[in-house]
Simulated assay, not measured.
Amino acid sequence: MTTWITICDTCKREGWDAAAMAQTDGEALAGLIEAAASGVAGVKTRRVSCLMGCKSGCNVAIQSRDKLNYTLGDFIPDDEAAAGIVAYAQAHAQSATGQVPFRDWPHSIKGHFVTRHPPLPDSE
């Protein structure tokens, strides 16, 4: 089953300056994640404009149908963060429930979890 990395491309970290920076921090992180995820089995990416986590930007959501889903934030847009996010998403894709053992989390995502969302029920 596919795990989606939903990336907020409007995130701006503290100190972001429109006059000095050609793109938002979210756009920078999105480009890095897209490159890192290229060709990774079970993982797809998409950009959205605003995950409403502005106090902890840069934000991403790790999502898949019928699994636990997660929001992560407060990333610096760099290669290490992007690689960790993609590695976690790949482990999420391989998990039947979406839960990934802490020992298997990439170091670069530890401390970045904001929320966990249980799967939606199948019926009302």
Results as ranks from 00 to 15, higher is better:
G84Q: 04
V60F: 04
A91D: 02
R47N: 09
T45F: 07
K55L: 14
T115C: 13
A20P: 02
G53D: 11
L120P: 00
I62C: 02
M52V: 02
G73N: 03
G26R: 12
T97M: 05
T115D: 13
T2Q: 11
A61V: 04
W16K: 12
G39N: 03
L32G: 07
I7Q: 12
A36L: 02
F113L: 14
P77T: 08
G39S: 03
T24H: 07
Y88F: 15
E14K: 15
V43M: 06
D66Q: 12
A82Y: 02
S123E: 12
D78S: 08
P121L: 07
M1G: 13
V60T: 10
R46F: 00
S108F: 06
S108C: 08
Q63H: 06
G31W: 01
V40M: 07
G73A: 10
N69H: 08
D104A: 13
E27R: 12
R103S: 15
T115M: 14
D122Q: 10
I7S: 11
G31P: 02
V114N: 12
D78R: 06
S49T: 11
D9Y: 04
A18F: 05
N69A: 14
S56Q: 13
A22W: 00
K44I: 08
W16I: 12
Q94D: 12
T97L: 05
K67Y: 06
L51N: 08
A89M: 08
D66L: 06
E14V: 14
A61S: 09
A41I: 02
T97H: 04
I76P: 00
A96E: 15
L51G: 06
W16N: 11
H117Q: 14
D78F: 05
A91P: 00
